[in-house]
Amino acid sequence: MAASLLEVRDLHLWRGSLHVLRGLSFEACAGDVLVLEGANGSGKTSLLRVLAGLLWPEAGEVRWEGQALDDDRAALGRRVSFLGHEQGLHADLTPAENAMFATQLRRRCAADEVREALAQVGMADTDRPTRALSAGQRRRVAMARVLLAKAPVWLLDEPWTHLDASGVRLCQDLIEAHAAHGGLVVLSAHYGVDFKSTRLRRLGLS
C-alpha cells in the first residue's frame, strides 16, 4: 500500500446550526479516484472546500503528505487544482486568456500549451469571450484550466455538471488518465459514476 497523500481525521464542520461533517476520517493515496457520494446538502462541496483550504473545519485535521493544511499555503497551492461550482473564468476574457492567466499564476506557460489543453477538451477554436459560451463549454474550459495547473491533486466538485454525453466521457477519461499517471482525484457526484480505474474508492456522505 502506497503512503497516504491525503489524511483526514475526525473532521467536524458546521454550516450555521447544521452539523454537516460529523467526525469524518479517511485516507487517499496517489493513483486513487475518490468519489464523494451523497444527496444534496450532504456536505460533498463543503468537504472539497475544506480539503482545498477554502473552508475551516471546526474540529479535526486535514493533512496533505503529512503536512497540516495551514502549515504551508503555498505548498497546498502547488499541490491542488480545484474545480468548484463556479468555473473561475472571467466572462470578458476568451477561453485561452482565462486558461493562460490561471496557469501563469502557478507557473510559466506557453501559448502552445494552452492551445493543446483547450484542444484536449474540444475548445481549441473558440476565441469568443467566455460570456458567449454555453455552460457546458465553460465547464470544458475550466477542465482545461485544471489540466494546465499540472497539480498532482485534483479536487472536482461535480465535474460533469452542464456537460453533454461526450463531455462526461472526456472528463472521465481525463480523470482516469490523471490517476493512472499517479495523480489523486477527489470528486463529488450526485449519482453513481463508473470508472475503469482499479483504484476507484467511494465515500458516502449522509
Binding site: A52, G53, L54, R73, A74, A75, L76, G77, R78, V80, S81, F82, G84, H85, E86, Q87, G88, L89, H90, A91, A102, L105, R106, R145
Partner: peptide, 22 residues
C-alpha cells in the same frame, strides 16, 4: 464582485502566490 461571483478569487486563493499581494 465579478471575480468573486465567477470563482476567480477562489482560484487566486488556491494559487501558490500570497493572496494579499495579488
Amino acid at each position: 464582485k465579478t471575480d468573486w461571483d465567477d470563482g476567480t478569487l477562489e482560484q487566486w486563493a488556491l494559487s501558490d502566490q500570497p493572496l494579499a499581494m495579488l
